[in-house]
Design a protein around this nucleic acid. Structure first.
Ligand code: SF4
Ligand code: SF4
Lengths: 168, 168
DNA sequence: GTTATTCGGACATTTAATATCCGAATAATG
DNA sequence: CATTATTCGGATATTAAATGTCCGAATAAC
């Protein structure tokens, strides 16, 4: 029951993009270098975000990534699901159909109480993550950081931010 | 973000033991055969439950496993944690300390909002599983099963159940 | 004491996560 | 419009973890 490291990186990258002005983006290498992680693997996560419709990508010179929708519409669950997949964590293999007292498939129309309990727990997990958006994260970062640190970030952004072409 | 198959097997095995009369047990091979899973791997999960204090084991002839405490005191989270470990699913690698704008370790006294959000979601997951005990599962199995099927189970139990020695 | 039996941990195998590489596509440039 | 520099995209190795298997240590019956 481990969450991939890629989720952490993707959330950080998305939070960074949420701080950019409208129409600007960052290339994968910049996002990776900023966080001190392998470039190619960070790129893989951004690819997953792109396929999920969370970010838009532009190729070629001055290409890069930007958010595909407002930060208020992107929850931590959206990002987690994009990287880890939407499937349930508890995989029921229907072993009640096995063995000497196995049930017939006909009697397994609905999930049992064990599967239902795990399903309910996962729903609670999802709902908790759905309640937190990138907008919330950004707001709290601004509130909790030293002004000096925010200045550093702004300075770095100015040196790396790319004016993306408008037609992806 | 996958939960090990061993969790499913362990929950099933524990539910089976919860149906036994006081002082009786089942050997690992019987539990594995009943569920149609590899014997040695089921044994591994039972070992984990034993180390976690959820079941008691007795070795030697007429040995086997039994619950170490009442079914009302064993939750699905207890079993999940025994198999999967107690560590958090979201592993924060403190990448905010990396890169050109990395924070000093001094400024990372408390977890950030991202880590806090995942921690909160995992707490919701745990609390949901903690609310379901083996007693609940057993009660619902009896209510939802065909009498014919329950009879099959009772019959099988009588042929496989072992009177464990009282001093583990 | 002997023996049959069972659990316990050490040992392979398979799968998934992690990390990397090179080709396809795009926009700037002349 | 052709060229070229640049960037994303998917296919490809490598490593860690989950899965599956085995044999010795311990115990109780005899
Ligand atoms: S968890 Fe429930 S549905 Fe899944 S195999 Fe077990 S009894 Fe069947
Ligand atoms: S999730 Fe939070 S605590 Fe963890 S590395 Fe990112 S900023 Fe730091």
């Amino acid at each position: 029951m481990q969450i991939s490291k890629g989720v952490e990186w993707a959330v950080h990258a998305a939070s960074m993009m949420a701080a950019l002005p409208e129409g600007r983006g960052l290339k994968a290498a910049a996002l990776a270098h900023y966080h001190g992680v392998p470039t190619a693997y960070m790129a893989k996560q951004l690819q997953a975000l792109s396929k999920a419709g969370i970010v838009q990508s532009s190729r070629g010179a001055h290409g890069g990534y930007r958010l595909a929708k407002p930060a208020t519409d992107i929850s931590l669950w959206d990002i987690t699901a994009a990287i880890e997949g939407h499937g349930p964590a508890f995989r029921c293999t229907e072993i009640r159909q096995n063995g000497p007292c196995g049930l017939k498939r006909k009697d397994c129309k609905r999930p049992c109480q064990i599967a239902a309990a795990f399903s309910s727990a996962e729903r609670a997990f999802r709902d908790s993550l759905k309640a937190v958006t990138l907008a919330h994260i950004g707001l709290q970062v601004v509130r909790d950081s030293e002004p000096e640190h925010l200045s550093d970030i702004m300075h770095w952004l100015e040196s790396e931010v790319m004016p993306l072409s408008d037609t992806p």
